[in-house]
Nucleic acid binder design. Structure first.
Lengths: 254, 254
DNA sequence: CTACACCTTCACGCAACGTCAATGTCAAAC
DNA sequence: GTTTGACATTGACGTTGCGTGAAGGTGTAG
């Protein structure tokens, strides 16, 4: 039972290029080469190829497969578990992505029937609704209806460019905050920059900035688990850290 | 407002390499170059970069982004819809992959006996602990300690095969629910199938099934954002949809 | 004047092959 | 004995979105 590249390829359903590649990376070497340099595979190689293809179908990368098939002491099931973890994480990311894409699409659809001029109205409207639904009640209780309505009104008055700046600033706040958290010091320069960015971000929608409101809001980020969860995406203690940084930034005393 | 590569990079949170690459592929060219060949970007380029990054975050590839941002006649929303289709298909593949990997793992575990059985016990134990930590308090408040403890006890009494059925059912519920959401009709056959699967799934751990409890639980999936988030992985309105479907399934009247 | 930070253009590396290209070999047909 | 055609070989580039040097020019502060 000896096979040339093509025969083995047909048998296993892979291209000859693949077999040469597997030889090249040392994952499946032919049993021998004939006088003209042709690759000759035997039964052992067939079995091994099956094994390789089995793991390949499960999405395992060739480097890991190599370890599994070459080192008999290597635990395949264990490797698969780690692999599963990666896949599950990948799916989580994909789920988030799809949710965002769908949000964007439905926002865009709400707008497409309208005039071109009102391009982002639907998008912003959606954002406000989301926000209201998530945090509306608490914010209204704390800051009063007027303030919140004014804030929403400001957002509705944003144009597309402002909106993009707004979302970008949001990203920046999170990025700097994450970096700052690593320092562990809320009075560090980075932390204070995060607080400043957060103020700027706030200024986009909050009608009147005040140190007290800023400090109070920061406290709420800690108290309200939904806010906390939002910030803690970037670091387990990000919400607390931001509060401390903002309290220093605003000169707020406990 | 002029920026060199690094300045713009810091502003937008991308590397200078990325900006040079975007120049190279013609997706974002600098406004001009100074006498020494330095790239100089202006406000227009900043805006455009924002737009690029916006789509990039949604996982759109640069080739498509190029079309969107360079050709004003190109419909971004349309591109996003095709993109979503790709993502959904990708997720379907990923789901299949994960199922296969899990099948393989549990098959391998069923083979090796003693040590792995203990691992399995640990697995269940872990699952209960996770669950307790995440939802424990609310559930205990709503349904009482006894019920919850009984539920946990049932899970601990599951054998491996039952456990596999249980997790498999969980996946099925999500899959059918996703499909049902597309119909938009909670009374549709698919939606009712989802509700039925959900009941079966529930039966695995819930000691005594009742329509009232089922309907109430479904309502909680909407009210509690953590449950909602779990179901909304598959569709933005999945939690609400499931509630409606279950309410029809159980004949619950508002 | 000298650091030193910042800029430039190559160019390789990454995963897993697909796809030529140029050339050698085997078996059968003429 | 030669031609043909299928099959083999070893390169080597293309794919995607940059990261990461290398080698060398430029801007500015001390």
């Amino acid at each position: 039972m000896e096979y040339t590249v093509q025969k083995l390829g047909e048998l296993a359903g892979v291209s000859t290029r693949t077999l040469r590649y597997y030889d090249e990376i040392g994952i499946l070497k032919p049993a021998r080469k004939n006088s003209s340099g042709y690759r000759i595979y035997g039964q052992r190689e067939v079995d091994r190829l099956q094994q390789i293809l089995f793991y390949r179908e499960l999405g395992v990368d060739l480097k890991s497969i190599k370890k599994i098939v070459t080192d008999p002491a290597f635990d395949g099931a264990d490797a698969l578990k780690r692999h599963r973890q990666q896949l599950v994480e990948k799916r989580r990311q994909l789920d988030l992505l799809i949710m965002n894409v769908e949000k964007t699409i439905s926002a865009a659809e709400g707008k497409s029937s309208m005039a071109d001029k009102e391009k982002f109205e639907g998008f912003k409207q959606q954002l406000i609704e989301d926000n209201e639904q998530q945090y509306g009640q608490e914010i209204r209780e704390k800051y009063g209806n007027e303030e919140v309505d004014k804030s929403n009104a400001r957002m509705l008055n944003m144009n597309e460019q402002q909106y993009r700046q707004f979302t970008q600033l949001e990203q920046e706040v999170l990025a700097v905050l994450r970096e700052a958290c690593e320092t562990g010091d809320p009075s560090s320069e980075t932390a204070q920059k995060a607080a400043d960015l957060h103020k700027q971000w706030l200024a986009f929608t909050w009608p009147s900035y005040s140190k007290e409101a800023h400090a109070g809001l920061a406290q709420m980020y800690v108290d309200d688990e939904r806010f906390a969860a939002y910030y803690n995406k970037v670091h387990p203690k990000a919400a607390e850290f931001l509060r401390d940084a903002v309290h220093i930034y605003t000169g707020f005393k406990k």
